[in-house]
Amino acid sequence: MSSETAAAPTPASGDVVVDVKDLFAGYLPGINIINGANLVARKGELIGIIGPNGAGKSTLLKAIFGLVKVREGDITVNGESIVGLKADKLVQRGVAFVPQTNNVFPSLSIEENLQMGLYQNPKIYAERLEFVTGIFAELGKRLKQRAGSLSGGERQMVAMSRALMMDPSVLLLDEPSAGLSPVRQDDAFIRVSDINKAGVTTIMVEQNARRCLQICDRGYVLDQGRDAHQGTGRDLLNDPQVIGLYLGTLGADEGH
């Protein structure tokens, strides 16, 4: 199956939560890491972004969250451009971002970390705590525990929970399985799927390509800052070109 036949149909505009169009972005003047990338996430979708090292996967997420300068193109969330907005404004617009590392406040308790996620709207704490502990039940039993004493997988749960406290329109996850043991990796993917099934539109960058494509609704293969292939997760898993170029080296030992 070619990448053309694998491509998913263009979403109806009313369903679109995130729309990235012809994006060029980079860290240094005159050097773009993202070179004309496109991405669409519909309401309630789980979108996976895979590709080789250096393809610009994490940079694309950071560009959406305003951490990398956008030079050309546009990014809209719920139909409104968010290019140039600072992090606090993006959170107000419903964009939540969980970085790969340094994603909790280690000196604070789990409860205090969750409260930090709601500094813009503390009145909804009880309501949102009920939501996140419905997904991460064990956190609700350990709210007073210091985040710095948690394992890597547990910290990842706290980071995702904190991001969910503001009831975001879209959750951006950068390598949620990175650095975790195989068992914890599987747990991380299950949690991401649970978050999405709870109604949160999710865009996930992931190095474990096979596992990512197994759980996502649609996937994008980034190569040299461009979306080289797109389609449903199942189509990309079975696309000979994607298998030959990417899945042979990406997460091959994680395949089932």
Rank of each mutant, 00 (worst) to 15 (best):
S2C: 01
T5W: 06
A7S: 14
P9K: 12
P11T: 10
S13V: 12
V16R: 07
A25E: 00
G26F: 09
L28T: 12
I31Q: 13
N32S: 12
I33C: 08
I34V: 11
N35D: 09
G36V: 03
A37P: 09
L39A: 07
A41G: 12
R42V: 00
K43Y: 03
L46E: 08
G48C: 14
N53F: 00
G56R: 10
S58Y: 12
T59Q: 09
L60I: 08
L60K: 05
L61V: 08
F65V: 13
F65M: 14
V68H: 03
V68W: 05
V68Y: 02
V70G: 06
D74K: 04
D74A: 13
D74M: 01
I75G: 00
I82E: 02
V83I: 12
L85Y: 03
K86M: 12
A87M: 09
D88C: 01
K89F: 06
L90D: 06
V91Y: 01
R93M: 09
V98P: 12
P99E: 11
T101I: 11
N103H: 13
S109R: 07
S109I: 11
I110N: 10
E111Q: 14
E112A: 13
L114E: 11
Q120C: 00
K123D: 15
Y125I: 10
A126C: 02
E127T: 10
E130N: 14
T133N: 15
A137Y: 04
E138R: 13
E138K: 09
G140W: 06
K144W: 02
G148C: 04
G148L: 03
G153D: 05
R155E: 14
Q156W: 04
V158P: 01
M160P: 06
S161Y: 06
R162L: 02
L164F: 04
M165G: 05
D167A: 15
P168H: 06
V170C: 01
D174I: 03
E175L: 09
S177A: 15
R184A: 14
Q185S: 15
D186L: 13
D186A: 14
F189S: 07
F189Y: 10
I190K: 14
R191P: 00
R191S: 13
D194A: 15
I195P: 10
N196W: 07
A198I: 02
G199D: 11
V200H: 06
T201M: 11
T201L: 09
T202F: 08
E206S: 09
N208G: 02
L213V: 08
I215K: 04
I215P: 01
R218V: 13
V221F: 05
R226Y: 02
D227S: 15
D227R: 10
Q230S: 15
G231E: 06
D239E: 06
D239A: 12
P240M: 05
G244L: 00
T249V: 12
